[in-house]
């Protein structure tokens, strides 16, 4: 067993984990942060994306032990304490960027990482950045649109209104 301590959404969290415990498992099972989802076992779907020390990471493909001492941000920490959605979350709601909601936490966390590095990404840059985030419901149309809108771009010209 390995003792780990990390900061999750600003709070210190500690626990004893097995070597094989994944970060996604630690978040979901130990901390009860079930917003981080697991949708595949080949590191492709991205439903599990969280931020580790500010960088987007697939939490199902990182050992919890590797996150010892790290700052973790998950979907549960994205809205303001009073529940106000952040700009990306709000854009997803405004533009119907989610349906079943299962991929959504990973999408929002990936979008946040993208906008941090690239505050006004083009449509193509957004699509390429989402290579590691699968959505089966939306055909991606409204996800891309929502991320463009979250970055302050005018999406009124985007088709299908």
């Amino acid at each position: 067993m390995v003792k780990v301590t990390m900061t999750v959404n600003g709070r210190t969290a500690s626990g004893e984990v097995e070597g094989r415990t994944l970060l996604s498992g630690f978040l979901r099972e130990e901390l009860g942060l079930t917003g981080t989802h697991v949708g595949c076992d080949t590191s492709q779907c991205g439903a599990c994306v969280v931020h580790v020390d500010g960088k987007a990471v697939k939490s199902c493909t990182m050992l919890a032990a590797e996150a010892d001492g790290a700052e973790i941000a998950t979907i549960e920490g994205q809205a303001a304490p009073d529940g106000t959605l952040n700009v990306i979350q709000q854009a997803f709601q405004d533009h119907h960027g989610l349906q079943c909601g299962f991929c959504t936490p990973g999408m929002v966390m990936s979008a946040a990482a993208l906008l941090k590095d690239n505050p006004k990404p083009s449509e193509q840059e957004i699509r390429e950045y989402l290579e590691g985030n699968l959505c089966r419901c939306t055909g991606y149309h409204n996800i891309v649109k929502a991320i463009m809108a979250a970055s302050g771009q005018d999406v009124s010209a985007v088709a299908a209104e």
């Binding site: 580790v52 987007a56 697939k58 493909t61 290579e131 590691g132």
Partner: peptide, 9 residues
């Protein structure tokens, strides 16, 4: 290589 999250690890 891979995707952005994979490239971070």
């Amino acid at each position: 290589i891979g995707d952005p999250a994979v490239r971070n690890r």
